[in-house]
Design a protein around this nucleic acid. Structure first.
Length: 428
DNA sequence: ATCGGCTCGCGCAA
DNA sequence: TGCGCGAAGCCGAT
């Protein structure tokens, strides 16, 4: 299986009480290779399966908004795992650090730990810490996309070459429901765990409000998928669900293909080529979120314009508060703050202007990462980093004429973006 | 409304 | 070695 990776060289403890699935990113029952793997181990060892869906409270950019989405997903999962052969427990960390003790006491009694292999944000560090301290085997499993992200060690620099590579590879699919028809021993409720969801802990910052119109969880995800396929196939709105793992790209691919719509090609390219291109970068490039990982031509051309006079410079605070002279840009930043998303076309303009209005490209990068991770429901994801770095030249090519600040990095203007948006809404 | 040129990396044909 | 082509553009010429 090219989706499972051992994270330490410890052994499976056949005398453990259960197999522990530490669910951190694929927060779902269905189409989940990691859960499938955990079920395999539990069956093999004839042990109960304990699923711990964990939510920390002190990771960077933790907010009421993100907690709400994840906990809505937990609420759905309480339903989906009810009457299943596995023991499912949501765990919402009540205060900073509390989760460590709970996790390590659970891991002590486990035969092994299976967890989600996610290549970005804090997850790789968490897995490393746990793998170092655990007394048993820790396995991470890749259920991110149709193609295993570690099947190659080549970092792809253009979508075109990645597309050609994918055409030559074979996608692999998890079973729709890994718990169907499975018989496992039952287990007693572990201490300190409960099937009830607590309120959002007081330590979670309240400054980024939830988005009631965009409910998290597998039920809302599937509802949105059905609606998307029934309608125009233009903007799916599925990226927050993909990010939290409330739905898998395998299921989306399956449903879209089943519908046999002729206009689905663009969407599938976005879902597969572009989405998995981002996972390829994060999985294989250690510095995926650092300025230094930009392509050489982009760094070179931006450097040669580093000392260009900026007609306007806004501070990170002014940008965050949507306090610029540009109405189109302010609207996109407002949209990000209130809805947790920016529409596709505006998203790129949003970044290009941050580059134009920051003292240096490095500062622009910092601001983009901060604002996107803080407010976007689908932030902190390989795809976010693709979008942000695209602004600075990643996956793009040079475009003349050479301009101030941008050099040969593609430029965008608010006026023509606004014009295109208007034309699009007229056609709709 | 549509077209080419701006410029680089990659894959493929030769 | 050369050629065509590429997520989201812009600008000026027709």
């Amino acid at each position: 299986m090219d989706r499972a990776t051992a994270c330490n060289s410890r052994h499976v403890n056949g005398r453990g009480n259960y197999v522990l699935y530490w669910m951190t990113c694929y927060r779902r029952r269905y189409f989940n290779f990691a859960l499938e793997r955990a079920v395999f181990w539990a069956t093999e060892l004839r042990k109960p399966l304990l699923i711990l869906e964990a939510l920390a409270c002190d990771y960077p950019w933790a907010s009421e908004r993100l907690h709400t989405s994840v906990m809505e997903g937990m609420h759905d999962n309480l339903g989906t795992f009810e009457h299943s052969p596995a023991a499912y427990y949501p765990y919402v960390e009540p205060s900073p650090g509390a989760g460590r003790a709970v996790f390590s006491s659970l891991a002590k009694r486990a035969c092994l730990v299976v967890t989600d292999d996610f290549p970005a944000f804090v997850i790789p560090r968490w897995i490393e810490t746990v793998a170092t301290h655990a007394d048993v085997l820790v396995e991470k499993v890749d259920s991110n996309g149709l193609y295993p992200m570690r099947a190659t060690d080549r970092i792809f620099l253009t979508a075109r070459s990645f597309r050609t590579y994918l055409k030559k590879s074979t996608p692999s699919f998890p079973v729709p429901d890994p718990l169907e028809g499975i018989d496992l021993p039952h287990m007693r409720k572990p201490n300190r765990l409960s099937r009830k969801l607590p309120p959002i802990p007081p330590c979670v910052p309240r400054d980024v409000r939830p988005v009631p119109r965009l409910k998290g969880g597998v039920n809302a995800a599937r509802k949105n998928l059905r609606k998307f396929i029934r309608s125009d196939m233009k903007s799916s709105g599925l990226s927050p669900y993909l990010h939290f793992g409330h739905i898998s790209s395998h299921e989306i691919y399956g449903e879209v293909t089943k519908a046999r719509r002729r206009d689905s090609e663009h969407f599938l390219d976005e879902l597969i080529t572009w989405r998995e291109l981002g996972f390829n970068m994060c999985a294989l490039e250690r510095d995926y979120d650092k300025y230094a990982a930009l392509p050489g031509w982009a760094r070179k051309t931006l450097a040669s314009h580093a000392r260009d006079k900026r007609p306007v410079i806004y501070t990170p605070d002014q940008l965050e508060n949507a306090d610029t002279h540009d109405a189109v840009w302010n609207a996109s930043q407002d949209e990000l703050i209130t809805t947790g998303r920016i529409r596709n076309r505006l998203r790129m303009l949003w970044g290009k202007k941050i580059l134009e209005w920051s003292a240096t490209p490095q500062e622009a990068l910092d601001v983009m990462i901060h604002l996107n991770n803080k407010y976007a429901l689908d932030g902190r994801d390989p795809n976010s980093y693709s979008g942000i770095f695209w602004v600075l030249g990643r996956y793009d090519r040079p475009w003349g004429p050479e301009r101030p600040i941008f050099g040969l990095v593609r430029y965008m203007s608010s006026a023509s973006t606004a014009k295109k948006l208007k034309a699009e809404s007229r056609n709709a």
